[in-house]
C-alpha cells in the first residue's frame, strides 16, 4: 500500500530505542525540575508580596513570549556554556515548562474557596499548615488536568533539543532518514513513538484523576 517500506527497521530499530531512551531521560528530569520549580513559583505568586509578584509576573510573561528553540540556544550557547548539552537542554526545557506550571498552580490555588483557609486559621492552623493540609490537596485536584496537558507538551518539546545535537528520538530519526534515503517512514515511526508515550501518560493521569475525584 502506497509503496511504504518499513524494512529499514530491522537494521535501524536500535536508533529508535536509544533515541527514545534519551527522550525519556530528558522528559523525566525536565518533568521533575519544572514541576518542583513551577509549583514553588506558583505558590509564592499566590502570596501577597507585591515586588516578588511583579518580578515573577515579568519572568513568566518574558519566557512565554520567547520561542522554546531560542531558549535552548540562549542557554546552551549563551549562559550555561560549560554545561554538557544534555543538561543544558534540560535547563532550557525546565525554564520553559516551569512558567506554565507556575501559572496553573497559581490558578489552581486561587480557585480554592477562600473560606477554606479561614476555617483552617480558625482551628489554630498557621498559614503554612492551612496550605499543607487544606489548600494544596484541593489545589492538586484543580491543577491535574492542565498539568497533564503540560506534561504532554513537555515530552513533545524535548524534540527541540535535537538542535544542540542531543541524540534523542527526533535527532535519531533524522539520521535514519539520511542513511536510508527515505523520509516518510522513518519520521512516521518516531511520530508513532511520541504518540504512544504521551498516550500512556494521559491514561495514567486519567486514572489518578478518577481516584482523586472519588469523594466529589
Amino acid at each position: 500500500m502506497f509503496g511504504l517500506n518499513f524494512g529499514f527497521l530491522s537494521k535501524y530499530w536500535i536508533y529508535y530505542s536509544s533515541g527514545l531512551w534519551m527522550t525519556l531521560k530528558l522528559a523525566f528530569w525536565t518533568l521533575i525540575f519544572s514541576t518542583v520549580i513551577g509549583v514553588v513559583l506558583g505558590m509564592i505568586r499566590v502570596g501577597k508580596h507585591k515586588v516578588v509578584n511583579t518580578v515573577i509576573d515579568m519572568w513568566i510573561s518574558f519566557i512565554r513570549g520567547v520561542p522554546v528553540m531560542l531558549i535552548v540556544f540562549i542557554v546552551y550557547y549563551g549562559i550555561a556554556t560549560g554545561l554538557p548539552s544534555f543538561w543544558a537542554g534540560i535547563v532550557a526545557l525546565t525554564v520553559n515548562s516551569s512558567v506554565y506550571i507556575a501559572e496553573h498552580t497559581r490558578a489552581g490555588m486561587q480557585a480554592v474557596n477562600k473560606g477554606q483557609m479561614e476555617a483552617a486559621r480558625c482551628i489554630g492552623m498557621s498559614h503554612l499548615e492551612g496550605n499543607m493540609y487544606i489548600i494544596i490537596p484541593q489545589a492538586i485536584k484543580n491543577i491535574l488536568p492542565s498539568l497533564a496537558n503540560e506534561f504532554i507538551l513537555l515530552i513533545k518539546n524535548t524534540s527541540i533539543v535535537s538542535v544542540i545535537a542531543i541524540q534523542e528520538l527526533t535527532y535519531k530519526s533524522s539520521i535514519v532518514r539520511t542513511n536510508t534515503f527515505r523520509a516518510f517512514e522513518p519520521l512516521i515511526v518516531s511520530a508513532f513513538i511520541y504518540f504512544t508515550v504521551t498516550w500512556i501518560l494521559n491514561q495514567g493521569v486519567r486514572l489518578l484523576e478518577r481516584r482523586l475525584h472519588r469523594n466529589d
Binding site: N113, Q116, A119, A120, R121, I123, G124, Q138, K141, N215
Partner: peptide
C-alpha cells in the same frame, strides 16, 4: 495568634468544611 484561635472557635454561615477531608 494561632494558639489563641484554638480557644475561640468559629462557625461560619457557609460552613467551610474542609472539602478534601471526610
Amino acid at each position: 495568634i494561632d494558639a489563641y484561635r484554638q480557644k475561640v472557635g468559629m462557625v461560619f454561615q457557609l460552613f467551610n468544611l474542609f472539602e478534601n477531608l471526610s
